[in-house]
Structure formats: C-alpha cells, structure tokens
C-alpha cells in the first residue's frame, strides 16, 4: 500500500483522469446544450460511436490525427441529423429515436469494424504531445495537464468559452428560453426549432469529438461498443451540472479519475478488482444525491417537442 500517495501513482492517476475524462467532458458539454434547449438527447451514445469510428478510420488512413478529429466531429453531427429531423422538426418521441440511433450505431460501427479491421487490428501510434514551457515541469500536475496533445488544451478551453456563451450572449439566452419557455421565445421572433437544431447538431459535434478522442488518443484503436455507456454518463453529467459548463468539467474529471484508478493502482502495486473500482463514480453520485437531496433543476420543456400554437 505504500505505493499510494507516491509521485508515480498520483501522476498516473491524474493523467488517466484527464485521458478518461476528456470524452466525458465533451459528451457532457454537448448534451448540456441540447438539454438547455429542451431536447433530451439519448442518442449521444450512438453519436460518440459514430465519431469514434469515423475519427479512427480517417486517422488511420490519412495518418493525420487532426483530420481524424475533424471526421469524428462530422460523424457525430451526421448521427445528430436524424435526431434533428425527427425529434426537433417533427416532434417524435426523443427517447425512442435516441435509443434507436444508439442501437443502430452500435450495430453499424461493429459491422464496419468487423469488415475492415477484424483481421488486422491496426493501431495508431501514440500521439505527440505539446509540452507547455515551465508548466509541464511541475511534478505530477505537469505531465498530467501540461504535457498533452494540443486537443486536450482545446477541450479544456471549451469550458470557459461555453460559460461565456451561456451567460453573456443572446444565443445563450435563446437556448435557455427554448428549454424553459419555448412559446415565449417564439413570440419574440426567435425560431425555437432553429435554436434547438443548432443545439442538437452541436451535441453531435461534441459527442463525435469525444468519441474520436476516445479511439485515437485514449485507446489508439477502434473497438466495437467502446464507448461503454460514456454517452449516458454525459447525459447524467449534464443533468447534474445545473446548466453550468464548469460543473460538467468537475464531474467529468471525477468520473475520469475513478475510471483511471485501476491503472493507477496497478502502477502502485495494489490489486483491486476492476469491477469494484468501476462502481466508484456511480456510488459517489448516489451518495451526493442522498446527502444533498440535490434536485437537477431541469428545463421545464425538456423532452417535449415544440409545436407552434399548441397549448
């Protein structure tokens, strides 16, 4: 047990938390915008898988990790398109379509993987990092936070950017109105459907990027079903965050940290069953909910299609 609280353990833990947390962060931030605008996006798991597959395929065939991220974002957004057409513009049940998309993408990406990679299992090389001078020399924090692929920094920068978008811009206000009082937004002349469309496509982009990061940086390989419920954790993070982007970041890092505990424990020479450690983040959330009885304060119109003139 004395391997704990030593530098290698803490470094591995923190670095692992970031690696495992980035996909959750992106998924959570994406889902947050959908939920603000009143769309419960359960298809996000499928969007992540779409992004992971498209991102990996592009990165491995082009050799460019950035093209991979671009393709991942496009892949995720592509999966979001049916969600927009069916649920935002037509008002179909969001849960049915969301789960349908998730199941469909699970199947589709697994088949494509089976056809293309199941014999060769190609792997991407470890990504190159961009150490930030001085900061990357700090023990523990440096390697975990400041000696990473530039994409990681960009992902973190998204948090303040979105916070400003939500608090300080008209669009942020429209989003909230689309989720809380869509009819009122409509009266002011802003298109509710268009606002929600932007939000859901953004969710797709973010989820796709998260998936691409998972495959290209986290694992270096695409594996069927590799998101393992990350999208659903994103849904929960967005619900718990009460509309604040910074809370999504905190939640994503806590979840990521718990997910990386296994590897960190191995480095410290402590053997704890993976399944037990995997329970930690979920148990933490439950304890928090029990102790604080925290209400999620969801948008009033969450899950409800907007039909002009109804009610």
């Amino acid at each position: 047990m004395e391997g704990l609280l030593q530098v290698p353990f803490l470094t591995a833990l923190l670095a692992g938390a970031v690696t495992a947390g980035i996909p959750l962060l992106l998924a959570g931030l994406g889902e947050q915008m959908s939920e603000k605008a009143g769309v419960l996006n359960v298809g996000i798991e499928g969007m992540m898988l779409g992004g992971a597959y498209a991102g990996f395929l592009t990165a491995i065939s082009s050799g460019s990790i950035w093209l991979g991220f671009l393709a991942g974002a496009c892949g995720g957004a592509l999966v979001a398109v049916p969600m927009v057409i069916l649920c935002v513009q037509r008002g179909l049940n969001q849960i049915v379509i969301g789960i349908g998309l998730t199941l469909g993408l699970e199947g589709l990406t697994a088949i494509l993987h089976h056809v293309q990679f199941s014999r060769t299992y190609p792997r991407l090389a470890r990504v190159e990092t961009l150490p930030i001078p001085l900061l990357s020399d700090i023990p523990i924090l440096g390697p975990a936070l400041f000696d990473r692929h530039p994409f990681v920094y960009l992902a973190f920068l998204l948090v303040p950017a979105l916070a400003i978008l939500y608090r300080g811009t008209n669009f942020g206000l429209w989003l909230r109105a689309a989720g809380d009082r869509p009819a009122a937004l409509d009266v002011t002349g802003i298109d509710v459907i268009a606002t929600r469309t932007v939000a859901v496509i953004f969710t797709g982009l973010m989820a796709g990027l998260g998936g691409a990061f998972l495959a290209n940086v986290g694992a270096g390989i695409f594996v069927p079903f590799m998101t393992h419920g990350d999208g659903f954790i994103g849904v929960v993070l967005a619900m718990l965050a009460r509309g604040r982007a910074a809370s999504v970041l905190a939640g994503a890092m806590i979840f990521g940290g718990c997910l990386s505990l296994t590897t960190a424990f191995q480095i410290a020479g402590v053997n704890v069953p993976t399944d037990v450690i995997q329970m930690l983040p979920f148990a933490t959330v439950m304890v928090v909910l029990i102790v604080f009885g925290r209400q999620a304060s969801l948008p009033v119109a969450l899950g409800l299609p907007y039909v002009r003139g109804e009610r």
Binding site: V236, D275, Q278, M286, L289, G293, Q295
Partner: peptide
C-alpha cells in the same frame, strides 16, 4: 426529495452491472 429518477436509475444500473460482476 424530488430527485430526477433518470439520473438515479442510470447510476444504479451502472452500479448494478458492476456489482453483478463482482
């Protein structure tokens, strides 16, 4: 407490699948 059950049941299902494995 009025805590949204989508969150709690999802949490319990992740917990449950791991616990079943344990």
């Amino acid at each position: 407490h009025g805590v949204n059950e989508i969150i709690t049941t999802l949490m319990m299902t992740f917990l449950g699948t791991s616990l079943a494995n344990v």
